[in-house]
Design a protein around this nucleic acid. Sequence first.
DNA 1: GGATGATTCAAACGAGCGTTTGAATCGGAC
DNA 2: GTCCGATTCAAACGCTCGTTTGAATCATCC
Lengths: 243, 243
Amino acid sequence: MAGRLTSSPGAARKSAQPDPTSADTKTRILDAAEQLFMEHGFEATSLRQLTTAASVNLAAVNYHFGSKEELFQAVLTRRLDPMNQERIELLQKVEREAQGKPASCEKILFAMLIPALRLARDERRGGSNFLRLLGRAYADPAPFIRHFLSEQYAEMIGRYKEAFLRALPQLSRQELTWRLHFVMGALSYTLAGTDALKLFAQVAPGEKENDELLLQRLAPFLVAGLKAPPLGDTRKLELVSGD
Amino acid sequence: MAGRLTSSPGAARKSAQPDPTSADTKTRILDAAEQLFMEHGFEATSLRQLTTAASVNLAAVNYHFGSKEELFQAVLTRRLDPMNQERIELLQKVEREAQGKPASCEKILFAMLIPALRLARDERRGGSNFLRLLGRAYADPAPFIRHFLSEQYAEMIGRYKEAFLRALPQLSRQELTWRLHFVMGALSYTLAGTDALKLFAQVAPGEKENDELLLQRLAPFLVAGLKAPPLGDTRKLELVSGD
DNA sequence: GGATGATTCAAACGAGCGTTTGAATCGGAC
DNA sequence: GTCCGATTCAAACGCTCGTTTGAATCATCC
């Protein structure tokens, strides 16, 4: 048996150009996995098609990552870690600029959206492919994916919740928890979308509906939802009354 | 070979009680499939565990439904068809009561949510299990699922879009298309949720956060988002400016 | 230039998959 | 009581899966 976990295996190589075929084996696997997991999902992507697409040997995945599951986590962590770190830093900057006063709801939300948008526009970091993968991972029932994501998101979400609580003092902590849930839902569903959009059709096909325009439409929707009067302030909804 | 597709195979039986083990074979398969597809997703659910859970023979799925994919569609269609039909009827009722004037945004939205809520509360129709399955199906990349869902939803969504257009004349058709997309995102993500909620934790564990309360929180959020001023009315968001 | 450890490779492993088969069984009609 | 189509059943088919193995290759240092 080769020394699979004795030391970080990829330590021998030196540089990595953005050339698709000449890159590091590890990187080639990650790139192909990002693409294929996004297109077909985790379960429906086989290591054989993945390693073929990456032009590496079948055994390379288990050698470099240990297992298919660990590969999936590596694919996510490569982009998610820096993105969430950037979100935290941006939030800190927003709060610094507010000088003790609560930052505005809009600015907090933008601090959350901007790193996602930057990532989507950066082809060197997977472009919008990765965000679509992330949106789908969010809805995946596999327990290891759910546990992994909740760990990756816990700190970032916690910090944003505190910031929103100060910006929206009329909301109880519980009410805000729900609304952040809705925000993440609309966001991840939208990012995962593209073809789901065809449900609603009529988006002019020639028009470049790029990610920036998308978030420009999403932001006002979410800000208005976050600022809506909480449940108790309006009359109770009459749901499920008799016909 | 038995006459697999010569006539509707289940036509010999007569009555079906809600007893879990004494029901129709077809029904037992559908019930088990609903549960397992919800828990593990389509790909990760094997016909062997499914037929074992339903206490039927392995071959019964192919005999009664033809294939695993067709079974999945049958699981969806059993609940989705009536629910979307109810949504359409409820919308017609709302528009009738408005007597020519555009119906209010709230009422249109409620007409969409109420059938989902009714289904969620009806244990005989799968309760909230099915809605969770539906939320996950919405994010599934498998093409046959996406095509199937877009067909199932096309008419309902189209009618609601026209109604919302009248209720929200300040929105362009394109803007509304996006907002309905966000609405469906928040809705399906929320319905698929349950354990995703633990991302945000702190929802008191003893408290019965049932589906009614959930939609009571979701509705004001969505209404506010739908009514938000469209993009052009506010200053352009300054995304991705330099630091 | 031989030793050493990291990496790649072809091949195989055992398991589980969706589906098919053909016989056994059932239940009502005649 | 016999027939017949509908249904159930145990067994197998062919295939693909993720993973493992042990030898071959490569790069590096002494």
